[in-house]
Nucleic acid binder design. Structure first.
Lengths: 118, 118
DNA sequence: AAATCTAATTACTTTATGTTACTAAAGAAT
DNA sequence: ATTCTTTAGTAACATAAAGTAATTAGATTT
């Protein structure tokens, strides 16, 4: 067998790829946006809906339910009428915010870059 | 019309939500992983495939094509036989790495946390 | 000549996401 | 008393993305 000049494992990278660990919580359509808007404090269903005009009620509902199951957000029904429901980040959810901030800051640079290119 | 005690816009958050700008490039199944493995230097199709044992050839191929179209990676056919194809991050692709690092570091903390909980 | 290697592609299935319309319950308006 | 409005959804349906398995093609190797 000939010598392989090229490494066949990415040994210079951190031992385990933990991307997946985080992407499970961050993945799924609209999830980053929901976390983003909740990072400013608790918000109600309808408020989140108007923060993201393009999301459908179904998707927002599905995403919030997922996130609740994963322990990223809490859901609190307020005793108003009609009843309103408040969502907030859990401690776990809050841990995702720094990663999201990094994503946003790259996003902003990309935006600037595109504006300059035009 | 009654006074609204609750802000109906998330005004305390940064003016524009740039998450989407970045998620377009980072979104899609396996994309973060591909960027991660390319962040250590150029790699061939088969190498990426074995870096990510669970990805199918079809998905890897599709994702790399997407990423090439979006200007995140370059594709170079090497004049070997059988021909091998080398992929590398572009400058734009490299800009995504810091965000990814933030994601990985959160991922690692989540992993540790789970290990402690068990 | 048959098997192997690399980098795919094709056909098909399953899961995820998106659209539109509708519901339930309470209070306010007519 | 009946209709309208608001909040937080759900149900039925349509499309897009992702996953599986088998196949391709050219150049070695056996």
């Amino acid at each position: 067998m000939a010598l392989k000049l090229r490494k066949n494992k990415a040994e210079t990278l951190p031992p385990l790829c933990a991307v997946g660990e985080c992407m499970v919580l961050l993945g799924g359509a609209w999830t980053p946006n929901v976390i983003w808007y909740l990072s400013g404090g608790a918000r109600r269903f309808g408020e989140l809906k108007s923060d993201m005009p393009l999301i459908s009620a179904k998707m927002l509902s599905a995403r919030l339910k997922d996130m609740e199951e994963k322990g990223v957000v809490t859901r609190t029904v307020m005793p108003t009428s009609p009843p309103s429901v408040e969502y907030a980040l859990t401690e776990l959810g809050a841990e995702l915010v720094p990663a999201l901030k990094a994503i946003v800051s790259v996003g902003q640079r990309l935006k600037v870059r595109r504006a300059e290119a035009a």
